[in-house]
């Protein structure tokens, strides 16, 4: 076959291929639902890499190991309220480990780098030129972060409860439902918070988010003063104690550490905070501009 004939054949092939792709004006309209589904399934697939699955399992098993060690190594004196005290220690440990430590760690991994990871992967530009894509990416990534974290802490709660029950904390299963619910609420609210920090501080997001998690939620949240009410930690702690029917209102410090408002007030404040933070993040990323990089 001559070179001209080969060229003609290639040209014809290219033409036919382009004809096949021609949508003849039937291009789909932008759809938040379709793009959200696309981002959600894409991000979900990305969670199933060996490293991420190992991390998920590690996060789920770590609290169980710690609780095993704590219960096994500490022996409370067998007084009348021995079981109740064990139950309180176990619940407090679960609260500190799951909605606080594990949720914060998971969100540092998943929610904080929402913009930064796209910038480093140089994939941000592909997304921002799609109508409404910034919104879908934010919400899709957020939902996956919540799912990943919530499922991880739920498994951890189940494991911890089973181990505690096995080691003699007979009331362990009484707190399971409450801790699972608090875990999911923590994932939703902390997810929104970390995503907001990631969007506001796009270049040093991890530093700011870590500092916030330790300084505000970790330290300020446990200060026995009114200032702790500005933290999510305070709201979650109050909810958990409410659902576990633990009454510390009689204790002078209990009121400062824990709740004064009703369960609905805590839920309302956290729901409002979540919506406000997500709206703030959307506003921020809709206005973000990044220098176009050329590699060549």
């Amino acid at each position: 076959m001559s070179q001209d004939a080969l060229h003609d054949a290639d040209t014809l092939r290219a033409k036919q291929a382009l004809d096949r792709l021609n949508l003849a004006g039937q291009r789909p309209s932008p759809s938040l639902w379709n793009s959200l589904q696309g981002v959600f399934s894409y991000e979900l697939i990305r969670t199933f890499t060996p490293v991420r699955v190992a991390l998920w399992l590690g996060m789920a098993f770590f609290p169980a190991l710690l609780i095993t060690a704590t219960i096994y190594l500490t022996r409370l004196p067998k007084t009348d309220d021995f079981e109740y005290r064990y139950y309180l220690v176990f619940s407090a440990l679960l609260f500190i480990l799951l909605p606080q430590v594990i949720t914060a760690l998971c969100m540092l991994l998943w929610a904080v780098p929402i913009v930064n990871a796209e910038l480093e992967g140089q994939t941000w530009i592909y997304s921002v030129i799609r109508p409404g894509a910034r919104r879908s990416i934010l919400l899709g990534k957020y939902l996956v972060a919540v799912l990943w974290t919530g499922s991880c802490t739920s498994l951890a709660a189940l494991l911890c409860t089973f181990i505690a029950w096995f080691l003699g904390v007979s009331k362990a299963f009484d707190s399971l439902l409450a801790i699972v619910a608090v875990n999911w609420i923590a994932a939703i609210v902390y997810g929104a918070l970390m995503i907001t920090l990631g969007a506001l501080f796009q270049r040093r997001s991890m530093v700011f988010a870590f500092a916030y998690a330790v300084g505000i939620e970790g330290a300020m949240g446990w200060v026995p003063a009114v200032i702790n009410r500005f933290t999510i930690s305070y709201r979650l702690r109050s909810l958990m104690m409410d659902w576990l029917n633990v009454d510390l209102k009689g204790s002078p410090d209990g009121v400062k550490f824990l709740w004064e408002e009703s369960m609905w007030a805590h839920l309302f404040i956290m729901a409002t905070a979540t919506v406000v933070m997500l709206a703030l993040t959307l506003w921020r990323i809709e206005r973000s501009q990044h220098r176009f990089q050329s590699e060549y």
């Binding site: 379709n34 793009s35 981002v39 997304s127 109508p131």
Partner: peptide, 12 residues
């Protein structure tokens, strides 16, 4: 590529 089609509004 499927992700970017979804972002353009294509059903999955």
């Amino acid at each position: 590529v499927k992700l970017h089609l979804s972002l353009s509004g294509w059903p999955i």
